[in-house]
Simulated assay, not measured.
Amino acid sequence: MLKPPVGILGGTFDPVHIGHLRPAIEARDALGLAEIRLIPNHIPPHRANPLCSSEQRLAMVRLAAAENPGFVVDERELKRDKPSWTIDTLIELRGELPDTPLCFLMGMDSLLTLPSWHRWQELLDYAHLVVSLRPGWQPDYPADIAGLLARHGTRRAEDLHLKLSGHIWLADNLPIALSATRLRDLLARGQDTRYLLPACVAHYIEQEGLYRTVAENPQAGPAQPGGKPGHP
């Protein structure tokens, strides 16, 4: 008999915010997940290196996880000295959890770009894909993704309990229009970010003086003085 499924949420978490956490909470509740594993990565393969160090991002993720029942932190990707490919992490987790369905959480934008992922055709061999909505998004599925949904899509939450992997479940979650880039710009401007990230994370950012330099948006206005810039 299979154990209750486990959710997997990876990312740079630079910083972790409600756009990460709220869809994960809704997936946990809708699917009856045993836990959500937050997996911060060290070297993201598809984007620039994070502004904050691995240690700072790990500290923020730990703070966020501590406030959410069923959330745990998995540090495995931070210990790698190479890009963190999702397929490698899923293979490791499958070896460690042979009787547990794995549910890899992603946004609709990630699903649409899935063919650009490393060994993407193998992902469903190791996990289910749980896809959250994005505000105002009207998906125009490419042919390969439309075919993937036709073969693997399900609307039945119980299906993800009955198999170790292989389904794609489209979540009916509350859409949240927030990106880490936008949040970092707000922080750099010194604007109020309450309700956009956990209060404990906001306190850590303030305490450490993170994100006070404007590195991404030259129109964002002057940086706030007196802070320690995030590590490149």
Rank of each mutant, 00 (worst) to 15 (best):
D74S: 06
D74L: 04
D74Y: 00
D74P: 07
R76N: 00
E77K: 02
E77N: 05
L78Y: 00
K79F: 11
R80V: 02
R80E: 03
R80N: 02
R80A: 01
D81S: 06
K82S: 14
P83N: 04
P83D: 09
P83K: 02
S84E: 07
S84R: 02
S84D: 10
W85S: 02
T86G: 02
T86P: 01
I87H: 01
I87M: 00
D88S: 06
D88T: 00
D88M: 03
T89K: 04
T89D: 03
L90A: 08
L90I: 05
I91F: 01
I91Q: 13
I91T: 14
I91M: 12
E92S: 13
E92W: 11
E92H: 12
E92R: 09
E92C: 07
L93T: 04
L93M: 10
L93C: 04
L93A: 04
R94T: 09
R94P: 06
R94Y: 07
R94G: 05
E96H: 02
E96N: 04
E96P: 06
L97E: 03
L97S: 04
L97Y: 08
L97F: 11
T100V: 10
T100Q: 03
T100E: 08
P101W: 03
L102G: 03
C103I: 10
C103A: 14
C103S: 09
L105D: 06
M106P: 00
G107E: 11
G107S: 12
M108P: 15
M108N: 14
M108V: 15
D109P: 13
D109K: 09
S110Y: 08
S110Q: 15
L111I: 14
L112P: 08
L112F: 11
L112C: 11
T113M: 12
T113F: 07
L114W: 08
L114S: 07
P115F: 05
P115L: 07
P115I: 07
S116N: 13
S116G: 12
W117Y: 11
W117M: 12
W120L: 01
E122T: 13
E122G: 10
L123K: 12
L123S: 13
L123T: 14
